[in-house]
Amino acid sequence: MLSQEKIERINELSRRSKTKGLSDEEAEEQQNLRQEYLQKFRSSFKSQMEGVRVVDPEGQDVTPAKLKRVKGENNRGH
């Protein structure tokens, strides 16, 4: 995830945008920070999903085929 400093800066810019408004530079900084946050969030979420295995009550692996394919593709790359 992002550093605590960057998260605090995102929040600060958000508060300021609601009260005083942002300069062009601040608006650009806010957009860049948001994009970085989303990129890291998506990457983290994807990693978590790739570690998921679905098992039914009988103990059978019922992980969706698409997720199995993604896992296989990523394991070949490592």
Rank of each mutant, 00 (worst) to 15 (best):
E28G: 00
G72L: 08
V70D: 02
F41H: 07
A65H: 15
K66Y: 01
R69L: 13
Q39C: 05
S44Q: 11
D56K: 06
E50I: 12
D61E: 01
T63Q: 11
P64T: 09
D56C: 05
R34T: 02
Q60A: 15
P64Q: 08
G51T: 06
M49G: 08
T63K: 01
E50M: 08
R42Y: 00
L38P: 00
Q60H: 15
K71H: 05
E28M: 07
Y37L: 05
R53M: 11
Q39F: 00
Y37M: 00
Q31M: 06
V52I: 08
R34A: 00
E58M: 14
L67V: 01
R34L: 10
L33G: 11
Q35M: 05
S43Y: 03
E36Y: 01
K71L: 04
S44H: 11
R42S: 03
E29S: 06
R42F: 11
E29C: 13
V52R: 07
V55T: 15
E29H: 10
K40R: 05
V54A: 15
D61W: 05
P64H: 09
R69M: 14
K40C: 04
L33Y: 13
Q31K: 14
V62S: 15
R42H: 00
E28L: 02
F45Y: 09
M49C: 13
M49F: 05
G51M: 04
E58L: 14
Q31D: 01
Q35I: 09
V55N: 01
V62T: 15
K40T: 05
D61L: 13
M49K: 13
E73G: 13
N32D: 09
Q48I: 05
Q39A: 06
G72A: 09
E50C: 02
L67W: 00
E36S: 03
L67T: 02
Q30L: 01
L67S: 06
N32V: 08
K46A: 13
Q30R: 12
K66A: 08
Q31G: 08
S47V: 08
E58N: 15
P57D: 14
Q48R: 12
S47I: 08
L33Q: 13
S44E: 14
V70Y: 10
L38I: 09
Y37Q: 03
S47Y: 03
V55P: 02
G59F: 07
A65Q: 15
Q30D: 09
R69V: 06
Y37S: 03
V52P: 09
L67H: 07
S43V: 00
V52S: 10
K66R: 15
E29D: 13
K66P: 07
V52K: 10
V55S: 07
R69D: 01
V52L: 13
R34C: 01
E28V: 01
D56E: 10
S44M: 00
G51H: 11
K71T: 14
F45E: 08
E28P: 02
S44F: 05
R42L: 07
F45W: 06
A65P: 00
Q31E: 09
R42E: 04
M49H: 08
V70R: 12
S43F: 11
M49W: 00
P57T: 12
L67Y: 05
